[in-house]
Amino acid sequence: MADREKGTPEGPPVGRRALLGMLGLGAAGLAAAPTLQRGWDSFLAAASQEDPTGLSALLPNPGGFRYYSVVGSVPHRSEADYTLRITGLVRKPMTLRLPDLRAMPQTRVVHDVQCTDGWRVPNTPFAGVKLSDLLDEAGVRPQGKALRFTCFDGAYSENLTLEQARRPDMLVALQMQDKPISHAHGGPVRLYAAPMYFYKSAKWLSGISVTDEVVPGYWEERGYDIDGWLDGADKNSGGQG
């Protein structure tokens, strides 16, 4: 069947060149990413300022939040039925409602929100009750070493060491961007751990339990760092409070 050899194609290997070209472009993109990203971020910041369509949120790394939830649907909690329970190694277990939280001293923290998935929302104000104030109120027993946070989505959990939790930039947040936190953003109450990656800031917070050791949270059981410090976070001081 030598005739069939007639069909053997000849000519420049353009397919292979397209493949290798794309690989080269990918490598160049990785090398130039830090520079390109800075330019892209500033372009996005400008674009989202005057974007009535909201389409800029679809662009890679949009200058806004993305919705994350680990369950199918999250129940809504309102003024009427929201409670935050503080339990575990405390002298005075507490069940707090929204008015109770609002009655406590409020602290406002402005910090960049940074997700492990690359998106970042600069200078975002959060306001609420400092974790350390809540811990003082409940009275941590001497055996208490860490906090475990649970959520009313029924699945998510997080943790902080007691030392981390006592920083002045660790909040039980009631407000984000000076508005009550919406359901999509983890409202009515979420954790805000300013110096750490955003997965540490558990949404839909419903329970704080003082434990004698660190219990890995939802993503930490799936490979994430137990301590989600941001690069360059000042791990010793208390942030700007």
Binding site: R17, A18, L19, G21, M22, L23, L25, G26
Partner: peptide, 12 residues
């Protein structure tokens, strides 16, 4: 070109 490009893109 599509075949070569998409093979490279999938690898990246």
């Amino acid at each position: 070109i599509y075949a070569g490009w998409i093979a490279g893109a999938v690898l990246v």
